[in-house]
Simulated assay, not measured.
Amino acid sequence: MHCQPEYKGPVYIWSKNKQICLLCDEPSDSALALCSSCQDELPWLGAQCSVCALPLPAASLTCGQCLQRLPAFRRVIAPWRYDFPVDSLISRFKHHEKWPFGRLMAELLSQFLHYRYDEGLSRPDCLLPVPLSRRRLRQRGFNQAGMLAQWLGEHLQLAVEPLLLLRTQDTPAQQGLGARARQRNLHQAFALAADTPVAGRHLALVDDVLTTGATAQALARLLINAGARQVDVYCLARTARPDTPD
């Protein structure tokens, strides 16, 4: 007597699946599409500002800008500097629809966040992707921050609310603008969706790169003014210079 049905077709065995590293094209030695050698050589963000994650020469310091005026967000969590090859991976994901690169970085960011949660970092109530303008969304066809937030939500088991934040003004591109110009550019550029529950919640903004922090500051101030308890920023990379392209 056989309790299992007979099946003579090929059987997929997950443990024998061989991933190919997206950086060196060699077989990966992990479940990720990235080998351990290439992962070790990524531009990991070391010593940084304890608030905005700006790269600094020593750890446990706060940068001059944050000392002068604390931003509305509590902290920025970013695993990498915006440097090669992370800058290339982000650009290919963002501008050339190479979604496997984005998914790989989201998986690595989720691992990094799990590690930080184990160290005592508080988990947010939900993830909020930074919204794109309608014009740029039509041009690109997708919101890279929205895709990152969905992938992070799956790995971290966190809710994602992609429609809570609205981009109400189609502002000019931020590329090449300094910090003050970016702030003026974003004045009243965002709004909350009607009847949105924000008061008392711990929220985390999700984006690909943090440059001057002007976008994160504008959104965090909007959420704090609406009663949010805390706003963090999760992103893939942090630039060392405010003039780095978005």
Rank of each mutant, 00 (worst) to 15 (best):
H2L: 11
P5D: 06
Y7T: 14
K8S: 14
G9T: 07
L22Q: 12
L23I: 13
L23C: 04
D25S: 15
D29C: 13
S30W: 05
C38W: 13
P43M: 09
W44F: 14
A47G: 00
A47R: 06
A47E: 14
V51C: 02
L56I: 04
A58W: 02
A59V: 09
C63V: 02
Q65A: 14
Q65L: 11
C66P: 06
L70F: 05
P71R: 00
P71G: 02
A72P: 00
F73S: 07
I77R: 13
I77D: 09
P79G: 02
W80E: 09
W80N: 09
P85S: 13
S88V: 11
H95V: 05
K98I: 03
G102V: 08
R103P: 01
L104G: 11
M105P: 03
E107G: 04
E107M: 10
D118R: 15
L121F: 14
S122E: 15
S122R: 14
R123T: 14
R123H: 08
L127G: 03
P129F: 05
V130E: 05
L132T: 03
R134I: 12
R135F: 07
L137N: 02
R138S: 14
G141E: 05
N143T: 08
Q144T: 09
L148G: 07
W151T: 02
H155L: 06
L156S: 10
L164H: 11
T168Q: 15
T168N: 12
D170Y: 09
L177K: 04
L177F: 00
A181I: 10
N185D: 00
H187N: 11
L192S: 01
A199N: 09
A204M: 05
L205D: 01
V206M: 03
T211G: 00
G213L: 04
A220G: 07
L223V: 02
L223M: 11
G227Q: 07
Q230G: 01
A237G: 13
A240N: 06
P242W: 01
T244S: 12
